[in-house]
Design a protein around this nucleic acid. Structure first.
Lengths: 251, 251
DNA sequence: CGACTTATTGACCATCATCAACATGCGTGG
DNA sequence: CCACGCATGTTGATGATGGTCAATAAGTCG
């Protein structure tokens, strides 16, 4: 088996485009991972040296594949990334949907291979960070090290959400609320957004059948809780939605 | 709400008992987290300064509680630790069972609070590591930093195992195989061990009813796959057991 | 030896998956 | 612009898996 390179470097990383490196991340509106979670300014300028703008990846284009050599993590700068694995029977299991500002590849560190696939669900741009370089930098910048520890730690608990044995209604409600919160945190409307993934993808994420997604959406629409037409979702009654999700969402 | 201290320090940490610090961890047979996963010897001697032997904790004794201040991670030195949360309805969800050599508390870093409870299932001894001190040390020891990254990264994927929608048989088979492998890695028999947790705990971990655990155990016994009497388990036919778990276990 | 927890077994039933048919939307190319 | 074809989504009928409830057994600890 030949080893594949994972997220490829580009010849001409954006961070090296000009001398205006500091401005770069400040205008990278979605890089919450860099800007809003604890990096201070001195860190930021050092980070720029190793940031590379990658993309665009187009719909269904792979970003990395299971088994690829791990060499970099990446923050989503635009678009949505789906991570997934195939079990032995070939069934796809969706691990997560990653919105702008979120980091992918953290689960690859311990094996030095990506343990899952990542594809673009729409047009995706990434900030690539060479992990060896980042780790080296982190030994000099305790704040960066802390931030990495935090990001990693955060991901551990993340999937505890959908791990429980909750009803289809509860899981779908929680899924919508979760999306709502994440969009809101990124400056989008929390009540009106487009699902960038198919029903089948949602189903594979929530461990339900696609038909169940349809049916629950219809039930929620009949109950005046949401309005959904194709990919367009409007959350009408957060009260009721929260009630449905009770038990799943924490804090 | 008063803040609680999490894993308490002891007045007289074992590592400071005498000058024989280096021998200490080498004879700590279960500290795989320290010994067998990449720490080199120079690291080891530095680590001893901040290791504290904690315990014993007795059955059902809490080690930390959800909401406690996070200040330390800990490697299980002896016994088994159960981590769990209560959802809003008061239902318990078991996050994991932690055998000797495994590390608890990693999911607490990003909130600086423990996001779950940990109790001793039998008599438990721990190696406590102050996390601030460890992180500081990690800035000087890149190998230690790497090891922490790896441990954290490893925990991210860990629960993907039971996250899928698999049959009760598949999940229970996978649970037994998983235990078997972990015991084997720690020098115990992979085919003959005691379940230290109740059926109810297994159920809350696997998202099944306790009755289902009983029934599947019986079916497996009838099929000559395992022998189980109370807590004592013998794995008789790994072939069939693996077949049942197909799709869940990876690599 | 009792009181309690833990485990087993049976009967019944709800939820959700499966299968199948159909509808709708979308992109491509005439 | 329309027509076709494919992917995606919807809806209904049916059944299996596993949960719930209840009774009993067995182990444990005082």
């Amino acid at each position: 088996m030949t080893s594949r390179p994972g997220i490829r470097q580009v010849a001409n990383p954006a961070a090296a485009d000009d001398g205006d490196e500091f401005r770069f991340c400040s205008t990278c509106a979605f890089s919450h991972a860099c800007l809003s979670e604890g990096y201070d300014k001195s860190m930021l300028s050092e980070l720029h040296v190793l940031v590379e703008h990658i993309g665009p990846f187009h719909m269904n284009e792979p970003i990395f594949r299971e088994g690829d050599d791990f060499n970099a993590i990446a923050a989503v700068r635009a678009g949505t990334v789906k991570t997934f694995i195939h079990d032995i029977n070939g069934n796809e299991h969706v691990l997560g949907f990653h919105l702008p500002g979120e980091v992918i590849g953290l689960n690859a560190i311990h094996t030095s291979r990506y343990p899952c696939n990542a594809v673009a669900l729409d047009t995706v741009a990434l900030c690539r960070f060479s992990f060896p370089k980042m780790a080296l930098l982190a030994t000099r910048l305790p704040g960066l090290q802390q931030q990495l520890f935090r990001l990693l730690s955060q991901d551990i608990g993340k999937n505890a959400l959908l791990a429980g044995d909750f009803s289809a209604d509860a899981r779908i409600a929680a899924f919508l609320i979760e999306l709502s919160r994440r969009y809101e945190a990124r400056g989008f409307s929390p009540t009106r957004f487009n699902l960038v993934m198919t029903r089948a993808d949602i189903a594979k994420y929530l461990r339900l059948a696609p038909e169940t997604i349809s049916r629950v959406f219809r039930r929620m629409r009949n109950g005046g809780i949401i309005n959904v037409s194709q990919r367009a979702v409007v959350l009408l009654d957060m009260q009721k939605l929260n009630a449905l999700a009770i038990g799943i969402l924490r804090s």
